[in-house]
């Protein structure tokens, strides 16, 4: 492979990993991992415990040089030019380490200084990061006395000080309450809208599915899947060639449990063109349809015209957990 091609490929994505293997003694944490995450993507890195997520993030964050293969972040070879790569990367580790005795502003100023920002730019960078993460009212408060959610936001602010083009987060939502998780999610979405590529690992798969557009599934040190979430859903749910992923609807009907209302509704649904599968459970009807909303409308109209009282129609969210189990064949370490 020519050097020119290498460079072109390296520049293609925010993160390009090729044939990376990392061993700890006899244990192989990563085995020939290759993946590419496009610029501006909000990518979920999922996998069971021990799958190699933290190892991969450590390599991407230039904290681990003992690996085989090539890793480029924003076009920079992390092993050949770790200093340059660090200027492009913001890293938030799996727990939020804080120095005791420093307030929020001092903490950020220290890291702005450590990142090599000139004295004039430090204050602006710190102010911008504080404002972006909504920490204005806490700037003078001791960093070690913040709640876990606020500490996590402070760590994101720290990672954003030097305006990185790629943000790496290792289990950022673990231990956070629902409010803090929502705040963090909104923060990451805003970052992605501003063009920052984000790679976030987490065990809380349902939440990642809400806002990530790409996913990398790791299992036992190997990549099981790496693509757009839509594409993976389509593949996992056996979409027909050329079609988008099918839509799952949950329809609540009126009627007593055990009556023939459900059987009637199932029979009507199966007559609607395009309906692939119908499962009944109590007063709920699970229907698999082609992707278009026209099919949904046609189904509801057929049910109503057939005398079925439709109480609610809820499209099923893209369930990353289901996708993960499908991709990993249900094997969880």
């Amino acid at each position: 492979m020519s050097a020119a091609l290498d460079t072109r490929q390296a520049n293609d994505g925010a993160i390009v990993v090729r044939g990376v293997t990392r061993s700890f003694g006899a244990f192989r944490a990563l085995s020939n991992v290759s993946l590419q995450i496009p610029r501006g993507a909000l990518c979920a890195l999922i996998g069971p415990n021990g799958a190699g997520k933290t190892t991969l993030l450590s390599i991407l964050a230039t904290l681990d040089e003992e690996f085989d293969g090539d890793v480029f972040v924003d076009g920079v070879d992390v092993r050949a030019q770790p200093g340059l790569a660090r200027r492009r990367i913001g890293f938030v580790p799996d727990h939020a380490p804080i120095y005791e005795g420093l307030d929020v502003r001092d903490f950020l100023t220290f890291f702005a200084h450590a990142a090599g920002l000139p004295p004039g730019a430090r204050k602006k960078a710190v102010d911008d990061a504080i404002a972006f993460c909504g920490l204005e009212s806490l700037a003078e408060r001791s960093a070690s006395k913040l709640s876990k959610g606020l500490t996590q936001r402070l760590c994101v602010a720290r990672a954003l000080l030097h305006r990185p083009s790629v943000l790496l987060l290792d289990e950022p939502a673990s231990g956070l309450d629902p409010r803090a998780r929502i705040d963090l999610k909104e923060l990451l979405k805003r970052l992605a809208r501003q063009g920052c590529s984000v790679l976030v690992s987490s065990h809380i798969l349902t939440e990642l599915g809400d806002f990530c557009d790409h996913v990398v599934v790791l299992e036992k040190g190997s990549v099981k899947a790496a693509d757009r979430i839509d594409a993976l859903f389509a593949e996992a749910l056996h979409a027909r060639p050329g079609e988008a992923s099918p839509r799952h609807l949950t329809i609540e009907i009126r009627g007593e449990k055990g009556t023939d209302a459900l059987e009637k509704a199932k029979a009507i649904a199966l007559t609607v063109p395009g309906v692939r599968d119908v499962v009944g459970d109590g007063v709920l009807l699970q229907v698999v349809l082609p992707s278009t909303s026209l099919d949904s409308a046609r189904l509801v109209r057929a049910l109503v015209e057939g005398g079925v009282d439709v109480c609610s129609v809820v499209p099923e969210k893209k369930n990353l957990e289901a996708l993960f189990l499908t991709v990993t064949k249900g094997e969880i370490a």
Binding site: A61, L63, R87, I89, P93, P97, A115
Partner: peptide, 14 residues
Amino acid sequence: ESGTLPLLIASGLS
């Protein structure tokens, strides 16, 4: 022990 060493290294400090 407090986990700040990786942060220092990743921050670009030589």
